[in-house]
Simulated assay, not measured.
Amino acid sequence: MKHLVLAFAVLVLALTSAAADEKGLKELEGTYKVTAAEKGGRAAQKELTDTATVTIKGDEFVMAFGPDDKKVGKIKVGTDDKLATIDLVPSDGPEKGKSFPGIYKLEKGELTLVFTEKSERPKLFPTDDAFKAEEDVIVLKLKKAEK
């Protein structure tokens, strides 16, 4: 009987987690303009913020630098220590299949992603006092739906 109760509890937890992950993905859906980006504490080239867009639909993201220059990948969201987590996994290029663990926050149409190329997930955002500049940061602004 104990095992049955434990199995039921695990199932409920898994279903609740999957529903929360799906809700998180749904909240992120849209097309964004890159407004700021840093890699290792250094600002990205101005061309990136002038031209790049990110589209999220379901668990897929597309980062477009122009009509013929796109990077595609999958995302997985969740929560960890009260932070919204995101894992970015490129579907092409030299980093195909590699997971980049990160955190994100979405406030008033602005999506801030902090991720690393290392295995340990970041715990802080650039606005936090103890933030380490070695993490990568992308700030995106949701584009308004065209009528």
Rank of each mutant, 00 (worst) to 15 (best):
A133Q: 11
A7M: 13
A145Q: 08
L6H: 07
D92G: 07
F100A: 04
Q45P: 05
T116W: 00
Q45W: 05
A14W: 07
D21E: 15
E117K: 11
A19N: 13
D128W: 03
D87Q: 08
D69V: 00
L25M: 12
L111T: 11
K23Y: 09
V77F: 04
L111A: 12
K132T: 11
A36I: 05
M63A: 15
V5M: 04
T127A: 15
M1F: 12
T31F: 03
Q45S: 09
L88H: 07
T49L: 10
L4A: 11
K76A: 12
K26L: 10
P67N: 11
K70D: 03
G58I: 06
A19G: 09
L4H: 11
F65S: 02
V89Q: 11
D81S: 14
E117H: 13
A36M: 10
G66V: 03
P122L: 14
T51A: 10
K123D: 11
K144Y: 01
K39E: 14
V5K: 07
L28Q: 07
E135G: 01
A37P: 02
A64C: 08
V139Q: 14
K108P: 05
A18R: 10
E120P: 01
K118T: 11
P67E: 14
L140R: 02
V12P: 01
T79M: 09
F131H: 07
E27H: 06
V12E: 05
V137D: 07
E120Q: 13
K144Q: 15
F65E: 03
L113H: 00
G40C: 05
G93A: 11
E27P: 04
D68Y: 01
H3F: 02
T49G: 08
Y104F: 13
A36Y: 07
Y32R: 02
L4P: 01
V10M: 15
F115K: 07
T51L: 12
R42M: 15
I75A: 02
A133H: 12
K26T: 11
L124F: 06
V89F: 00
T127Q: 13
Y32N: 03
I56P: 12
E107C: 00
A7N: 09
D129A: 14
L106T: 10
I56M: 15
K147M: 12
K74H: 08
G73E: 08
A52D: 00
K70S: 05
K33V: 01
T49H: 06
L88Y: 12
E27C: 08
R121P: 03
V114C: 08
Y32M: 04
K23E: 14
E120W: 04
V139I: 15
L13H: 02
E107D: 13
E134W: 09
V10T: 14
L28T: 06
E60K: 13
K96D: 02
K105A: 09
M63R: 13
K71L: 13
V54D: 01
K2F: 08
K96Q: 02
